[in-house]
Design a protein around this nucleic acid. Structure first.
Lengths: 216, 216
DNA sequence: AAATAAATAGGAAATAAATCCTATTTTTCT
DNA sequence: AGAAAAATAGGATTTATTTCCTATTTATTT
């Protein structure tokens, strides 16, 4: 079971871990922004107020969190919250990174110029058919090196410029950059040093999976 | 998240698994025996009715069940458990990927040759000081392209061959491959096409962060 | 088979959650 | 520092859940 405090604490933590205030989370979930006001959690006559399971369902839906995630939030100790619960990390671009003191002397992000970047964890894993490919050999240098692991999604929409894993009907696995895709042909650019293109008839292609993450 | 059907089904199953009818469970929990009547789950104007989290808390209390138990009841008979709870995805290497039928015709992993790969989510984020760098410009092609996001860890141990973000004492941010690190110098190899090396005195370097993930 | 108890259907009333609203405080942006 | 936006407090109103109630059905007991 869970207590009134547990429920509200978990809601607060769910909000915080997804970069929202309770007000922002309510809004995002299609509820009134004042739904989770702390001043509304205990009524004027002292009675605790319990959100409906519909409200709960809505905030889990909008954050992509499961009930298990929510339960984990109930049990969490305040002092022991790993950043991992946040699902975001600070991000800055390379143009800005060198300009001002955005880093502490030991490489920690400081200052106000950082955006939040949604780290893969829960959000990308709605894609149930992700797979990983570990690179063997040096054929894809310098884009990919031996030991790198590519995470690919057959479901993700692909556009020109994307790096993709292509499976031909002959059973070949190709890792290239998608240059163009027409009704009849798929034009790919090799990732090796010379960057030559190859053009395949659509009928020769079994599937294309977009590379979304690379571990290095 | 969970649906209206999920919620009521779990309530029914909770009751049944503790030897109660829905009516009996409600009564036992201090609620009106008609609280969980099936006729009250959809209102006369067709709207779904969602129990409050207080009611939920009461029935879990009286049965001694936990929220995890309750969630398990939601998921019962569901063969379609999403992979996301696993924190791993299937992985194979590029040498094997083309050899046998490791993929279905729509790009889904099949067969027994797949390893499990720990996808970043919770496991890598014990490193609280991760940051992300978004690539601006084409200077790092073809290793990194504009729009790629590098996830870097100042805490991760770096070795030769690793790609790293280096901060010099002058405030420069460099993205290179680590060729060698001695007591006095750090030798880096540029990621651009010509792959020239640069050698910096250790004293000129503020910190080095290893690139661990790339979004593309 | 009949009697009794429990469960359930479904409407009305009471209570509670969410929404709407105004005002203030806090945070963010310029 | 000042302006603007977001968040929050808290009251009033609307909507929704639970309780109360009566009647019927189903299950259990005799």
């Amino acid at each position: 079971m869970f207590s009134h405090d547990d429920m509200w604490r978990a809601i607060d933590r769910l909000a915080d871990s997804h970069g929202y205030s309770p007000s922002g989370l309510a809004k995002k979930a299609g509820l009134d922004p004042t739904t989770f006001n702390k001043s509304k959690r205990i009524s004027s006559d002292g009675k605790p107020r319990w959100p409906s399971t519909e409200s709960l369902s809505k905030i889990l839906a909008v954050t992509g969190a499961t009930m298990s995630d929510f339960i984990a939030l109930i049990g969490q100790d305040d002092d022991n919250v790993p950043r991992s619960g946040r699902q975001t990390i600070p991000m800055i671009n390379t143009a800005m990174a060198g300009k001002s003191t955005h880093f502490s002397t030991d490489g920690h992000p400081i200052g106000n110029s950082w955006d939040d970047f949604n780290f893969p964890g829960l959000s990308s894993l709605h894609d149930e058919n992700l797979f990983a490919l570990e690179i063997i050999g040096h054929a894809l240098m310098p884009a990919y090196r031996e030991g790198d692991v590519l995470v690919a999604s057959p479901q993700a929409h692909v556009r020109r410029g994307d790096r993709v894993v292509v499976r031909t009907r002959h059973g070949d696995i190709l890792i290239h950059e998608l240059r163009r895709q027409t009704a009849n042909r798929v034009e790919l650019r090799m990732l090796g040093p010379d960057g030559n293109s190859v053009s395949l008839p659509v009928d020769d292609i079994s599937w294309i999976a977009r590379i979304i993450w690379v571990s290095q």
